[in-house]
Computed example of a mutant assay.
Amino acid sequence: MEEQRLKELWQTYGSEKRFNYSKIKDRLGDNHSIVKFKADEPIVMRGDFPTYIYFIRSGVAIGIRDYEDGSEYDYFQLDETNGSIGLLETLAQKEEIIATITCLTEVTAVRVPSATVYQWIMQDLELLRLSANLLADDLYHRSGSDGLFYQLNGVDRLRYYLVEYYDKQVKSGDELVEIQEIREKIGHKLGMSVRTVGRSLKKLRDNKEIVSIDRKIYVGSNERQRLQKHLIRV
Rank of each mutant, 00 (worst) to 15 (best):
D79M: 12
S143I: 09
E80M: 09
D137Y: 12
N133C: 14
R129E: 15
L87I: 03
T116H: 14
K94S: 07
Q119N: 11
S114W: 02
C103K: 00
D124W: 10
L104W: 08
H141F: 14
L104M: 11
L127T: 09
R129M: 15
E126S: 15
L88H: 03
M122P: 05
L91P: 02
V110F: 04
I121D: 02
Y140C: 13
A115L: 14
Q93K: 09
T100L: 03
L128N: 12
T108K: 07
Y118L: 11
Y67M: 08
S143Q: 06
T108Y: 01
D137K: 14
V117W: 00
I97F: 03
D69S: 08
E95G: 07
S71K: 12
Y118M: 07
S84P: 02
Y140R: 15
R129G: 15
Y73G: 05
E106L: 01
R111Y: 03
R129F: 15
L88S: 04
V112N: 00
L130K: 05
T105F: 06
I101M: 03
N82Q: 05
T90M: 04
A132F: 08
G147H: 11
Y118G: 09
L91A: 08
T108E: 14
T100W: 01
R129I: 15
E72G: 11
I98L: 09
G147N: 13
S114C: 06
Q123E: 15
W120C: 05
G144W: 03
A132L: 13
L87N: 00
N133D: 11
M122S: 07
L135P: 01
Q123P: 07
S145W: 08
L127Y: 03
R129W: 12
V110R: 03
Y73E: 09
D137C: 14
A92T: 06
E80F: 11
D124Q: 08
D146E: 08
A99D: 02
R142T: 14
W120M: 09
S84M: 05
Y73R: 14
I98F: 10
S131H: 05
S145R: 10
L135H: 03
I121H: 01
I101E: 00
A115N: 12
D69G: 05
L139P: 10
K94C: 06
Y75W: 14
D124G: 04
S145H: 09
L104C: 10
D69I: 04
Y140L: 15
L88A: 06
S131V: 03
R129P: 14
T102P: 01
P113T: 05
E96S: 10
Q123T: 10
S114M: 04
G144I: 10
V112I: 10
I97D: 01
D138V: 08
T90R: 02
H141T: 07
